[in-house]
Design a protein around this nucleic acid. Structure first.
Length: 264
DNA sequence: GTCCAGGGTAAGC
DNA sequence: GCTTACCATGGA
C-alpha cells in the first residue's frame, strides 16, 4: 500500500538513534523488522510504497509508526523563542517515536551503554543472526529471552561485541520472566516503572528512560545521554530546559538529539 | 598510542 | 546523598 509522506520520514527515523532494526536495502528503500514481521518500503516523491496490505498496515505497522500521535501539533507548540528546539524540530520533522517491542528496546538499550550507534547496530545484528529466528534470507528476529536464558552461560554470547554487557543480558533473561515483567511495568505510572526497571542489574536511569520511551511509549520519558548533556551545557547554559520535563519531553528530545548529533 | 561512544556498578566518602 | 575507578570494544 501507499503511505503519504505527512510528517513521517523513515530515513530520519532510521538514523535518529531510537531503533536498530531499520536498515537501508540494496535498491534505495528500507527494511524494517518488528517482532516477526518484515516491511520493505520504497520512497517516492510524495510518500512510501509499502510491501504490505492495508489490513497489515492497520493491524501491525500503524501502531509501530505511531500514526495516531499529532506530531504537527507538538511542533507548533514549541516556544518560538527557543531557537535550538525550533531548529531541531525543523530539521527532524518526520521523526516519530516508534512503538518497539518492549523486550527489543530493553535488549538494544542495555547494549547501548557506553557504546556508539554503529557498534550497537552491529551487536544487535549479530545476536539476531546467532540466536534469532530466520524470517527471510539474511533477516532474523530478536532472539527470545527464553533462548538466551537457556544458554550455558554468558560465554555463549562472546564474539558479538557485547563486551561486559553480556552478563547483564544473560542474567536478566535467566532471572526474570522477561515478557511478563515488562508487561507489568508497562501498566505502572512512569516513576514506578523507572524504579522497577532500575532494579535490574545493568539498567540505570538512562537505559530505563530509553525503555520507557521506545519500548513502553511513555513519551514524557527523557533519556539524558552524552549528547543531551551536551545540549544542556552548550545550548542552554547548563540549565535543563523546561521542555525536557513536559508531557512530550521524549519526542522533543528525539528532535534535539538528532539535530545535535548530525547537524552541529 | 589516546579518546570516545545514546552508562552502570560498586566502593568509598 | 555525591564522586570515582573500572568495566570491553572498535573506530577515529
Amino acid at each position: 500500500m501507499f503511505l503519504s509522506k505527512e510528517n513521517i520520514d523513515i530515513k530520519l527515523i532510521e538514523v535518529s538513534g531510537q531503533v536498530f532494526r531499520i536498515s537501508d536495502d540494496s535498491n534505495g528503500g528500507f527494511v524494517a523488522v518488528h517482532k516477526e514481521n518484515v516491511l520493505r518500503t520504497k520512497e517516492t516523491e510524495s510518500g512510501y510504497e509499502l510491501d504490505c496490505s492495508k489490513e497489515d498496515f492497520d493491524s501491525i505497522w500503524a501502531d509501530y509508526f505511531d500514526m495516531k500521535t499529532d506530531y504537527e501539533g507538538l511542533i507548533k507548540a514549541i516556544d518560538p523563542a527557543d531557537k535550538f528546539l525550533t531548529e531541531s524540530a525543523k530539521a527532524g520533522r518526520g521523526i516519530r517515536i516508534l512503538n518497539q517491542d518492549p523486550w527489543e528496546a530493553t535488549l538494544c538499550f542495555i547494549i547501548s551503554q557506553n557504546n556508539n550507534i554503529p557498534r550497537i547496530t552491529g551487536s544487535v545484528n549479530k545476536i539476531c543472526e546467532r540466536f534469532g529466528k530466520k524470517l527471510e534470507e539474511g533477516i532474523y528476529s530478536i532472539p527470545t529471552p527464553e533462548v538466551l536464558a537457556g544458554l550455558s552461560g554468558k560465554e555463549a554470547l562472546s564474539g558479538l561485541g557485547l563486551g561486559y554487557r553480556d552478563e547483564y543480558i544473560y542474567e536478566f533473561c535467566k532471572n526474570y520472566d522477561v515478557y511478563a515483567f515488562l508487561e507489568e511495568v508497562k501498566k505502572l505510572p512512569y516513576e514506578e516503572a523507572m524504579k522497577e526497571l532500575m532494579k535490574v542489574k545493568g539498567i540505570g536511569k538512562k537505559v530505563a528512560n530509553c525503555i520507557c520511551l521506545y519500548g513502553l511509549h511513555m513519551v514524557n520519558a527523557c533519556p539524558i545521554d552524552v549528547w543531551v548533556k551536551r545540549i544542556i551545557d552548550e545550548e542552554y547554559g547548563g540549565k535543563q530546559p523546561s521542555w525536557m520535563s513536559c508531557s512530550a519531553a521524549g519526542i522533543y528530545q528525539q528532535y534535539a538529539f538528532y539535530y545535535k548529533r548530525n547537524n552541529k
